[in-house]
Design a protein around this nucleic acid. Structure first.
Lengths: 318, 318
DNA sequence: ATGAAAGCGCTAACAC
DNA sequence: GTGTTAGCGCTTTCAT
């Protein structure tokens, strides 16, 4: 019992200096350290946080997960990760498995529009923070994607581009992207610029090949737009690559703007104009919100945190 | 007890079809699922794997971690991650914390040359696989970095470059990089090409700014080399970026070769010649080795797996 | 300031 | 094929 008190260094733990020293000495000598599973079993909670993102290898999420991991480590918590690959059942499976391990909380960048399963999780007693999406019914941290889309649109308008195209991912339910597109489209429309249906392009994914296919489609249709907004840097970089391969000059023939400001945006074939979002802060802040719940179990009002994006102008759309 | 048998679906678990169905129905109705902490406590092992890498946000490690995570998920295991940030004490801390949680095994890309602490871990009963490093005394998975360095050197020689420079990271103990450099240097030397000390450059890190500083140093010294080998793509891409900013043409004035073949290498400002290493396979294979240990506790001989790198020639050094 | 008793939810080992 | 017993290592509660 005394040993337990020494190792759970919290609040009213009355152990004399001397015994404490003796316990620590003995632990050192014996190589003892507390069994966190046993502790977790009795407290019905572990010092771990579960994280589910769409793709771990995506530099955007990699940066966020890194931020989360570091913030958790600072509080002595371990980080368990799962990559949903945009499969909602995979996402559910990870969350369920986290619960079976009694992670203290869960941070999720959700696949589906509906967040009903997260409400269940939270009502089941596991704090939940949603990443990169607004969530009226709970804590969430996201960049203001609507504003981000607007920034791009205003940039195009300022430069006089009126023949504008859009390249999206196949995420009908990824509302972050929806917001970007909405802000973009709306601001253009307010100035009388409409995106022609044949310039409203949908890639089957964000890989170099999948994006190349979209570019080919556009060029075969005779090209047309003078400016292109790709909803992520990963796509924009692939697009520029293919355009140049096909002899189209960027930005002289077509300007391209991306989104995210991943580390390589500045070093792309043509340095990429993009919307920067504070990835590290997204990670940090999501952890902060989560621990607000974990530490005090008081049911405060849900916090919706929205971070400001920033347009970074580089050569791809000067 | 019967419930336990149903949920631990292994080997000789004799439960009649009918009871099994009844148990599952009841569990469904009650929302029951086994408490993995309790199971872990009694078995003294959980269905989790711990991973420590140098940097999570680095695309090279992001790809590997993604591979590991997917391979673990396939076997129903969760993945716990830690980012050491090249701090050996951080690495040790994560490994110790993993042990306290009884992860079934550990995959580490180690910071230090000495792997003594990993031997301790393994002798303490936790299987260990070392990533991106050879480890005579245990299981390891790495690319053949010496060969990779040779490939670059041979490429330079074939192209007639004899004024050759090298840009390294500040990893005195990162033996993967050491092997690359050794293979590179040795092959050049065999053809009478020596790297001048003033062209043997050391960046203080691999960020864009840190690499830019090295390029500036080189140019202020009057430039010189006709070809540059950077020990990672991340650095090579930053180097090319700065060279172009400074009005130096790549590859006309200086050819640049990187290492890793990260996804953006092909889309760099000048598409990057590099050495591809099979990142996904590194992740997969490390998990396979780990489970070889986890599944059969038979103390087989250690496996040293070395994967072949491949030179990918793009425009930066045609 | 320290200790004793009980129990967290599970599985190993052994009945039946 | 199913049930019983014991115990994994810790914390909670209550006693001293």
């Amino acid at each position: 019992m005394t040993v337990s008190r020494v190792f759970s260094a919290n609040k009213l733990n009355t152990v004399s200096e001397e015994t404490q020293a003796r316990v620590l000495a003995a632990s050192e000598a014996l190589g003892y350290s507390p069994n966190l599973l046993a502790r977790g079993l009795v407290q019905n909670r572990t010092t771990t946080v579960g994280v589910v993102v769409l793709e771990l290898a995506n530099p955007f999420f990699a940066a966020i997960v890194s931020g989360i991991q570091v913030a958790c480590a600072k509080r002595g918590f371990l980080t368990v990760v799962g990559e949903s690959g945009r499969d909602e059942f995979a996402e559910r499976r990870y969350i369920e498995q986290f619960r079976q391990f009694r992670t203290a909380g869960v941070i999720v960048s959700p696949v589906t529009r509906s967040l009903a399963h997260l409400i269940e999780t939270r009502d089941g007693g596991t704090p939940v923070v949603v990443l990169e999406r607004r969530w009226r019914k709970g804590d969430c941290v996201s960049a203001d994607d609507n504003l981000g889309g607007q920034l791009v649109a205003r940039h195009f308008l300022r430069r006089g581009f009126r023949r504008v195209g859009l390249v999206r991912q196949p995420d009908p339910d990824h509302s972050a992207v929806r917001s970007r597109v909405r802000g973009f489209r709306h601001t253009l429309a307010a100035s009388g610029v409409r995106i022609l249906p044949e310039w409203d392009l949908q890639a089957s994914g964000s890989s170099i090949e999948q994006v190349a296919e979209v570019v080919d489609r556009l060029l075969q249709a005779g090209g047309g737009p003078s400016a292109l907004f790709a909803v992520s840097d990963v796509m924009a970089i692939g697009i520029i690559h293919r355009l140049i391969e096909r002899g189209v000059r960027v930005p002289e023939d077509i300007a391209v703007v991306g989104y995210d400001d991943i580390p390589f945006a500045a070093c792309a074939q043509v340095p990429l104009t993009t919307v920067a979002i504070p990835k590290q802060s997204l990670g940090d802040t999501s952890v902060r919100l989560l621990f607000d719940r974990i530490d005090k179990s008081s049911p405060d009002a849900a916090q919706q945190i929205s971070m400001s994006p920033e347009l970074i102008i580089r050569s791809s759309s000067p």
